[in-house]
């Protein structure tokens, strides 16, 4: 006997979808990236809290700050999306509400990430607005 599943269980297609581990690994890999990136952002925010518009522009114009900011935006979007998916799947049981929230979560994360990366690139490559 190679499987302990009942014929009914197999017919109903219940059981593991065999791809849950992907989320698990991506959540952890992104957390490893976010530990140093987040601490760097916190450290940078101390200096940025003292500067106005011009100082912030100069800061984000520096290539290292721009690259690390983009990495922070992407890693954060990946991590926060999966984290929210876990929470929604755990607490929202109504199928339609769950679907709406999962799609909304996906869109919010992608939108925030693309907007942030675009603005970082704009400042880093072109400079100040208007």
């Amino acid at each position: 006997m190679t499987s302990y599943r009942t014929p009914l269980g197999r017919a109903r297609n219940t059981g593991s979808a065999k791809h849950g581990v992907g989320h698990f690994i991506v959540l952890r890999v992104s957390s490893i990236a976010l530990a140093p990136l987040g601490l760097w952002a916190l450290y940078s925010s101390l200096a940025l809290s003292r500067t106005g518009f011009d100082g912030a522009l100069v800061w984000l114009h520096a290539p290292l700050n721009a690259v690390l900011s983009i990495l922070l935006a992407v890693a954060t979007a990946v991590h926060m999306r999966i984290g929210m998916v876990e929470v929604v799947e755990d607490y929202i049981h109504k199928a339609s509400t769950k679907a709406v929230l999962l799609v909304l979560n996906y869109f919010v994360c992608v939108l925030a990430c693309v907007a942030a990366v675009f603005c970082i690139l704009k400042i880093a490559l072109i400079g100040a607005a208007v």
Binding site: F53, L60, A73, M80, A115, A116, F118, I120, A129
Partner: peptide, 18 residues
Amino acid sequence: LYVGALVVAGWVVALASG
């Protein structure tokens, strides 16, 4: 922190807006 990430993203958007 989900909300916090959006606050930080808003900061960059504001910076790029002028």
